[in-house]
Nucleic acid binder design. Structure first.
Lengths: 231, 231
DNA sequence: ATAGCTTTGTTGCCAAAGCTACAAATCATT
DNA sequence: AATGATTTGTAGCTTTGGCAACAAAGCTAT
């Protein structure tokens, strides 16, 4: 297990080189545990004292609704972490439970250790702190943007904003969604048939055409207009 | 102008006492500017190097949509700040413009100064950093919760969740919204008449009664059920 | 190629909610 | 108390999108 390589997949350590990881590792007092599939590594309601980072394996986050139903609210791959928000927010307890989806290796770093400057006053510690801040701030950006989709009321508006955002991100008229229809509908919080129906109308109007995951934008002007004026 | 008292209204300094504020103030190199009403103190797209805190006055945040329309996206009162998210996220430019709503006094603190430990290695600096982290993490919690309302599709579900959340927060069957109908409808992202209509139905069903801002919950069980099973 | 599974397209019906317009109630101010 | 402004309630009409059910097209593996 190459811990350097694995750790670089994590946002807090993404821009660290092996040397820096090595140096900072001393002061962080991290500990590594191996668990088998199904293990609950975080329980909603429990206090958070550490950030967990998945080094090998994967996990699923669940929220238990008041009626007892478990709702999947996110997946963690290698480099994914948990507790990095709850550890600093509100009453510092887990909002969701984290269950390992396969045999996994988890690295834990105590939150006070991250926050407090170590006695050595090392510059890497500084960098870690900045990364933690960026990580949280970036998350706010992402959620804010997701919320924009939810606030748009019309189907065409939602679809247009999604396609236009992808167009801007991918910089080409032929965009790839990275979604199937079901996932796209779920992301936009609409029903799949209604979404399909509106996509057909947009095709008929000459704005787009598509085949599965691949969307071709024929009228960028119009799409931009739709995306930006959407209520 | 009592800067101590004013600053304590800000989340980053809320738990500081006068003495601590005094001490940390040296290392933060803050500067204070007075501006008149209408002044643009942050322009969307510009780089963020400082956090701004309103000491006197108030401001409004605007986003300019691609079609040129300005959308109000938040208000800042005394103690409110701007740049505290954008300063750490993505390309570190303002997402929105901040315009003063009246003659105001603004305190600026440079972000690197907040993040880097000062030469004196003072413990208050440490506390400020923790507050910054909490501030961002709490914000994520808030946005996440707001997004929950947006994801619920039925009118009754949205209303129920709002009332039930207020019930939990206020701990009494007689809750106060802090919203008028318009604001409530806007928050839930629905039209006011449709919302009113459904509130009447819920009254007819014996779940609630209300008069303006004051809502009486008659059937908590049922409200909880509605709030928790809402799709 | 064929069978079986998954994804996508298609349809019709219907309930939910949007919107406009207006009425009633409440509040604030003189 | 009267006026005007704001907030809330009401009604009818229209549109949107949810939903169920099914058809068609792609994939996969034998």
């Amino acid at each position: 297990m190459n811990i350097f390589r694995l750790l670089k997949k994590n946002k807090l350590f993404a821009d660290f080189d092996d040397n820096e990881i090595n140096k900072i590792f001393d002061c962080l007092h991290g500990h590594i545990n191996k668990y088998s599939r199904g293990r609950v590594v975080a329980e909603a309601g429990d206090p958070v004292t550490e950030v967990g980072i998945i080094l090998e394996g994967s996990a699923v986050k669940f929220i238990r609704k008041a009626d007892g139903e478990l709702v999947n609210c996110g997946e963690l791959e290698v480099g994914g972490m948990f507790g990095e928000v709850e550890g600093y927010a509100g009453d510092r307890t887990y909002r969701s439970s984290v269950v390992l989806a396969e045999d996994s290796t988890v690295l834990y770093i105590s939150i006070p250790t991250i926050v407090k400057q170590c006695s050595k006053n090392c510059p890497h510690h500084q960098k870690l702190l900045e990364n933690t801040l960026s990580c949280l701030a970036d998350r706010i950006d992402v959620i804010n943007n997701d919320a924009k989709y939810l606030k748009i009321k019309s189907m065409r508006g939602k679809i247009s904003k999604l396609f236009y955002d992808k167009y801007l991100a991918q910089g080409t008229n032929v965009i790839h969604l990275g979604f199937n229809r079901n996932e796209m509908a779920e992301y936009l919080n609409v029903s799949r048939p209604s979404m399909s129906r509106e996509m057909i109308h947009m095709k008929e109007d000459g704005i787009i055409s598509y085949r599965k995951d691949e969307i071709v934008i024929h009228d960028v002007e119009r799409l931009a207009e739709l995306a930006n004026t959407a209520r």
